[in-house]
Nucleic acid binder design. Structure first.
Lengths: 199, 199
DNA sequence: TACTTTTGTTAACACTGTTAACTAATTGAC
DNA sequence: GTCAATTAGTTAACAGTGTTAACAAAAGTA
């Protein structure tokens, strides 16, 4: 069955090349430039071949959306592992979130880009849930350690995420050469957030 | 010159009908459904007539973007006028910002939708600058009244806007029938923000 | 009336996502 | 080895998008 194995391998490589070609287009020319015909041209195959590997264009975009959440979850996990106290963990997550957004800008755009109605997919994805879970765990731990039983952890989580996303989004919108350095706005906002329920 | 006047009036009405038809499409079917051909069909004219009144599709979209900022600026101004103390003003602006986003969702989407590279236009628009100016004034006043000369007002403003946008964006993304009621997340986040530089 | 300008149309170009219909190559059974 | 069945890949089309050149008809002006 080595022939069948080779065929399978070739098909997988073709799928991989579709994703690589897609990513190259997105990185160099943005999400709007991504089209099936451009992909087909890049992989040197005809258009329907792309549809053999992905149901439609959305499926390709979705791949990168989920990849983004996977990467984000990994980064956030690493950020938490570095720290011991709750305050440090939250600050570290915030910093990691920021770093992710500036180093994976195209991912972030498609993960949180408004105006594109594909939220159903994202909201139900486990990749998303992992990210959410990491944040909530840290916040719940902080609440427990600070004996603030009256604090709503879900509310705190949503506030946390909203602040993070807001800072990133405004920064990405004002497309003035984004600097990798930690944003003072981030520090500012997170300090205020932390002091609202951690001593 | 009454004939020329009538012609001018008719042209203006045609332009108005283009905008009305466009808005109807956007409201009922979203921004993605807006197309020149759909507009032409709605106004019962051929396609090039639309181009007589707007240079291109972006110009139509831009109209609503600027209209959005105009409306937002008006709402924020009214919100400030209602209040006397700095804290109240900031809270009132936050609430007004939220209200604007939920009652003018389609406007908000196009004003801050990521992934659409039309920021150059928006950043240079006076409509945008007015909105910015209102927020900064209130913050500067708060800083002055609280004798916090070391506080960076621009930083505070960016943080403020980021928090507001983040909360709205996350809410709009999780398209679960948005409720008009004041978001607890908003109150939560703004309270934290205010206490970071107002006694 | 004859000329010019305005107003509007049709039809095309170059794209987009998507798919039906077809061909050529490869595989499996006899 | 031959023949049918499956697979891989193609071309060409449909329906839609933004945009514009070329043209016709109506209206205004001399």
């Amino acid at each position: 069955m080595t022939i069948a194995a080779r065929k399978l391998r070739q098909q997988e490589e073709l799928k991989k090349s579709i994703l690589e070609a897609s990513w190259e287009i997105v990185v160099s020319e943005g999400w709007a430039a991504l089209s099936i015909r451009r992909i087909a041209e890049a992989i040197e195959y005809s258009v329907p071949v792309v549809y053999k590997h992905f149901e439609n264009k959305d499926a390709i975009v979705e791949y990168f959306t989920l990849e983004g959440f996977r990467l984000l979850a990994k980064d956030l996990t690493a950020a938490v592992d570095n720290q011991i106290c709750s305050k440090g963990k939250i600050q570290s997550i915030a910093q990691a979130y920021w770093n992710f957004a500036v180093t994976h800008q195209k991912h972030y755009e498609i993960m949180f880009g408004l105006g594109i109605p594909k939220c159903e997919v994202v909201n139900s994805a486990i990749e998303m849930k992992t990210t959410v879970h990491i944040m909530i765990s840290v916040i719940e731990e902080a609440i427990a350690k600070n004996n603030k039983k009256d604090v709503d952890s879900l509310l705190k989580f949503k506030t946390f995420w909203s602040i993070l996303h807001g800072i990133v989004a405004i920064e990405l919108l004002s497309n003035t050469a984004i600097n990798q350095e930690p944003s003072p706005i981030l520090k500012e906002a997170i300090d205020g957030y932390i002091s609202s329920f951690i001593n």
